[in-house]
Design a protein around this nucleic acid. Structure first.
Lengths: 325, 325
DNA sequence: ATGAAAGCGCTAACAG
DNA sequence: CTGTTAGCGCTTTCAT
């Protein structure tokens, strides 16, 4: 491997000068810069990250800890975080929290031990207190899809309650009264918010839910819950709290020889992965998690940038129509 | 951050000794080791990876380059590679090849510039020659799901042609004669192999395919192809070359008011992600890509370990039954 | 079994 | 604008 030293010798300058052109320091005469650049190309030089990290006390590395790698939007999330990081010349390190506070904590410590400059935390099990502790230790990090009291400026959050309200209200406004909801696991805070948004909106409208079943965000549970639903009471509209379950519900509905939207209106949460791609395409309430991930990365790297606010929006794909009367 | 030096001072030994216990060198008196370990715990010391990498000329880092992060088995693949790497105390760096030879090549160079000790390559666009060039440059890497002539010992491959034969033969053995296939994009070599395995087997049995349509491995294309299929000729069995398309096909079949397996038998390729979780569950030909990924990682880190061979197997989940006569 | 000392390749004052 | 000089924290001979 060729080193800074080799380049310096080849170009006939000092190592410091080479370092300056590599790092885009403006204090270099145009002519010198050209010579050095030529030497770099000629020699195929690439700086050694470890040496750089050691000398500068910055690893140019950011860490991402997510609950799990499987299913859902993980790939998309990672894609966005990474492309944002790369565009700012940072390397991304990824680790999973594996659904427990202990594992999440360990994952975080691991990443800091690896000397990441900062972390993107998409964690569920860790307590607000632990997050606050981390902040007090002076660690750099951003929290994704969660609002921690006292750490507001480090959070990129989304109003799940409000999103659910919008979805539910859409159904009610179209005249539906027999509405069911398939929610996510109540162990997750955001699931609770989505569920509660549904219940509160129904309540405010003086409506009793046909059912409010708890799934686990998998396709299969969506299938099972919808199947159960259709065997007993028969709603005219179903609201699924994520895309995977909506696809499961879609399968069950079709299997019961019912048609969307004629027999049943179906609306779901939408992280941009599948709702648009199944048939029929699903009307959904958009959850811009990938944009949020990109923004969290941006904020982590450049704390001065202006915070974005992410609001729920409804994407009409025709799977919701007015109730027959 | 506490350093080796701090620990040495605290324990009253030299830095070299601390380094020895950290690295598990046996030439340390039991008593000394204990003292040092106590100091490490007491001070919460964690070695600086950059310093270590710089001094040892090893980054303890391995790189993974995949075609894309989205959909399919990427998460599972990454999960396996990472857990294998972590169990051997290596850090994983991931990059996507973004479906072009140029991008794949760049991704690889990037990872080597980052001084990865070795790479796992799950690449499609790169030519055999480029891979050979890499090998000649003395780079360490393993190739996943691809057999490159001359680089056999660096490949963890799978016989897609044979797997397709097995799936097709299963259908034929059960008396089906009106069989259709929905294959993947012909731009990918492994798709061609799967398609050809189907065609060859049909041919050998003296059967003419009802159709052999090309999809792009997405759920939507599975839906479209199956829909097209059912509008004209009517097969009694369909073979889908991946899981996503099979789910799309499932949707289309159900929408056409047909039942699996009574009206139509459906078999698909199975990477372990979804075929078992839709309803009805899908009989499939198992493609152990995640195990292969784990093994590639193992081989990369320990070139001496015994190579595993991965064979196709059929998993019967009841979506394929004998043809009505 | 332990220590001393010489780097690994780079950045960052500080001079000039 | 450029060069000199110290390190960054660790591994690794080479002595002892």
């Amino acid at each position: 491997m060729t080193t800074l030293e080799d380049v310096a010798a080849f170009a006939g300058v000092s190592r410091a000068t080479v370092s300056r052109v590599v790092n885009g320091d403006s204090n270099v005469k145009e002519k010198t810069r050209l010579m050095v650049e030529a030497a770099i190309t000629e020699l195929g030089y690439s700086p050694h990250p470890a040496a750089r990290a050691l000398a500068s006390n910055q690893s140019q590395t950011i860490g991402l800890v997510t609950t799990s790698y499987r299913g859902g939007f993980f790939g998309a999330l990672m894609d966005n975080v990474q492309s944002e990081a790369e565009s700012r010349r940072k390397q991304l390190l990824v680790t999973q929290g594996k659904n427990s506070a202990d594992n999440e904590w360990q994952a975080i410590q691991r990443l800091y031990n690896l000397r990441c400059d900062g972390l993107i935390l998409h964690v569920r099990a860790l307590s607000d207190e632990q997050l606050c502790t981390l902040a007090q230790e002076g660690k750099a990090f951003m929290i994704l899809d969660r609002l921690v009291p006292g750490l507001e400026d480090r959070c990129v959050a989304f109003d799940h309650h409000r999103a659910s309200q919008m979805a539910t209200k859409q159904l009610i406004d179209l005249g539906h009264t027999k509405i069911a909801c398939i929610s996510g696991p109540s162990s997750r805070h955001s699931s609770q918010l989505r569920r509660q948004g549904f219940l509160d909106t129904m309540n405010a409208a003086g409506l009793l839910p046909v059912a409010c079943l708890e799934g686990d965000y998998d396709m299969q549970s969506g299938y099972q819950m919808a199947d159960k639903l259709l065997q007993s009471r028969r709603p005219t509209a179903i609201y699924c709290c994520n895309e995977e379950m909506a696809i499961g519900a879609l399968l069950a509905i079709t299997e019961h020889r019912l048609t969307i939207p004629n027999d049943i209106s179906l609306i779901c949460y939408d992280s941009g992965e599948r709702a648009a791609f199944v048939r029929p395409a699903l009307t959904s309430i958009h959850f811009p998690i990938t944009d949020m991930a990109r923004h969290a990365t941006e904020r982590l790297i450049d704390p001065e940038c202006t915070p974005e606010v992410f609001m729920p929006t409804i994407i009409d794909r025709g799977s919701v129509i007015a109730a027959k009367r």
